[in-house]
C-alpha cells in the first residue's frame, strides 16, 4: 500500500469557505463554550443555595450513594437506571418519608437486594435523599404549555 494516496489539493481550500474563516468560526465557538462553561459552573441553578447546598451528613450520603452504585437502578429527576423508582421526592412524598426510605435501604425488598448498609450509613443516605427532595419536584405535572413547545413554572407543582 503506497503511503501517498491522497489528492494533492494544494493550499486552496476546495470547500470554498477558506481555512482562515473556518479557524475563526471554530475558535469563536470554543470561546463561547468557555464563557458558557463559566456561567454554568456559577449560575446553573434556580434553586437558592440554602435549599440546594448539602449538609456534611448529606455529603457523606451522596458519597455512599455512589459507592453502593444506587444510580444503577434509581433516578433523580429522571436521570439514572430504570430498574427501581425515581427517588427525587421519596422523602417528601405523601405516605413515604425518612423512616420508609430507611427500611428499604437497610433491608431491601423482593426486587432490591439488601446492600449491607449500616445504620449510620442509612441515616446519611436518608439525609442525602432529604436534601435532594428539597431542591424541587419530579415528575413535573404542570402542563401549562406554550406555543413554542415549552411549559411554564415547571417546579411550582405541589403534587
Amino acid at each position: 500500500m503506497a503511503l501517498r494516496d491522497e489528492v494533492q489539493v494544494g493550499s486552496k481550500d476546495p470547500s470554498g469557505f477558506g481555512v482562515h474563516r473556518k479557524r475563526f468560526v471554530y475558535f469563536a465557538l470554543i470561546g463561547l463554550f468557555v464563557v458558557q462553561s463559566g456561567l454554568t459552573y456559577t449560575t446553573s441553578t434556580e434553586v437558592p443555595d440554602s435549599a440546594a447546598t448539602l449538609s456534611e451528613q448529606a455529603r457523606h450520603g451522596e458519597a455512599l450513594y455512589r459507592e453502593f452504585n444506587c444510580t444503577a437502578c434509581h433516578q433523580f429527576y429522571g436521570l439514572g437506571g430504570y430498574m427501581g423508582p425515581d427517588l427525587t421526592n421519596v422523602i417528601s412524598a405523601e405516605g413515604k418519608g425518612p423512616a420508609y426510605a430507611k427500611v428499604f435501604i437497610l433491608y431491601g425488598t423482593g426486587r432490591m437486594p439488601a446492600m449491607g448498609v449500616s445504620e449510620e450509613q442509612a441515616d446519611a443516605l436518608v439525609a442525602f435523599l432529604g436534601a435532594v427532595s428539597a431542591t424541587g419536584t419530579y415528575p413535573v405535572r404542570n402542563m401549562d404549555l406554550t406555543v413554542w413547545g415549552t411549559y411554564r413554572e415547571m417546579h411550582t407543582d405541589e403534587k
Partner: peptide, 28 residues
C-alpha cells in the same frame, strides 16, 4: 462545503445542545 457544514452543526450541538438531557432539573 456540506461536509464542513455538517461538522459545524455537530460541533455546535456538542458544545451547546446538551441541556435537553436535564429539562426537568431546576437549572437556570
Amino acid at each position: 462545503k456540506t461536509a464542513f457544514l455538517l461538522f459545524g452543526l455537530g460541533f455546535t450541538n456538542l458544545l451547546f445542545g446538551w441541556a435537553h438531557h436535564i429539562y426537568p432539573v431546576p437549572s437556570a
